[in-house]
């Protein structure tokens, strides 16, 4: 974006404050999404889902084959390591400061709206790999007061760490618990001198204290034509692709297999699908 356009947008925003652009502000309020938002699935989301908007642009998504993760002990942890070491995600060793981009949840925690009454014994033990859903109607993007979190042209819910003021409104807004906050300096050390990031990847920045972070669908790898790190590490247990491309592999899998999403009734249109 060149600086002229940015200046224009700033002025337009100031205009909105003055009420000059009130109709457009009201319009975007009604639509309930950022102006920059581009997503929109072809699928309708669950029983509470609205008729989906016509797909515009890309919307990357992920199918997670839970059974393969259950059959291969340690596969989920392998994916987590791949992601967290690549993105310099710190490990503080306690729950209070915890930062995670991808993690494993129990079935009843990942899908609290699904019945847990008389459930299958295997289901209970299944490791549900969870990460940001990169919703096509993300509540976090709606809540952010600075557009520090936004939908990019690939349908990825991105974080602009330079702009985040650390108000944590997005954390309150995310229905999937996918967001973490840097409660303290991620480059620090614990009491016995162990750094929170054991080995810094020099090709990716760390974060600074006071900003929110989360999965970025490896947008830096996608730009180089690579798959996200977790998908690569999962070796077939995860299928990544553009949900808005009818010919993509992910759409083929979605049309053949029965999949579920986390909390579809909230109308967020999550881009993660689970095969159980």
């Amino acid at each position: 974006m060149d600086s002229n356009r940015r200046k224009f947008l700033k002025l337009a925003g100031l205009g909105a404050i003055a009420g000059v652009a009130a109709p457009s502000a009201f319009n975007s309020l009604l639509k309930g999404e950022a102006i920059a938002s581009s997503g929109g699935h072809a699928e309708s989301a669950g029983h509470g889902g609205h008729a989906a908007a016509a797909p515009t642009g890309k919307q990357y998504g992920l199918v997670i084959d839970v059974k393969q993760f259950a059959d291969t002990p340690g596969l989920g942890e392998h994916c987590i390591r791949a992601c967290h070491s690549l993105h310099n995600v710190p490990d503080f060793g306690n729950k209070k400061d915890e930062i995670k981009w991808i993690w494993i949840e129990k079935y009843e925690n990942a899908f609290p709206e699904h019945s847990n009454y008389k459930r299958n014994a295997d289901l209970h033990k299944m490791p549900i790999v969870t990460l940001c859903n990169h919703c096509s109607k993300p509540p976090c993007v709606r809540a952010c007061p600075t557009k520090a979190t936004f939908k990019n042209k690939d349908g990825i819910v991105m974080m602009d760490f330079h702009r985040c003021i650390g108000c944590r409104f997005c954390m309150a807004a995310c229905p999937y618990g996918a967001r973490s906050f840097n409660w303290r300096d991620p480059r620090g050390k614990n009491e016995i001198g162990k750094p929170f990031i054991s080995r810094i990847n020099p090709d990716f920045p760390t974060r600074t204290r006071g900003v929110v972070e989360k999965c970025n669908f490896c947008s830096e790898r996608l730009a180089k034509g690579l798959q996200p790190a977790c998908v690569e590490a999962a070796g077939g247990a995860m299928i990544f692709g553009d949900l808005n491309d009818p010919g993509s592999e992910i759409n083929k899998v979605l049309s053949e297999k029965f999949t579920i999403q986390r909390k579809p009734s909230l109308g967020t249109n999550p881009s993660l699908f689970y095969i159980l």
Binding site: M1, D2, N152, D154, D160, A223
Partner: peptide
Amino acid sequence: EYRDAVVRDG
């Protein structure tokens, strides 16, 4: 400008 181009516009 580069920062915004990379992070925001990909």
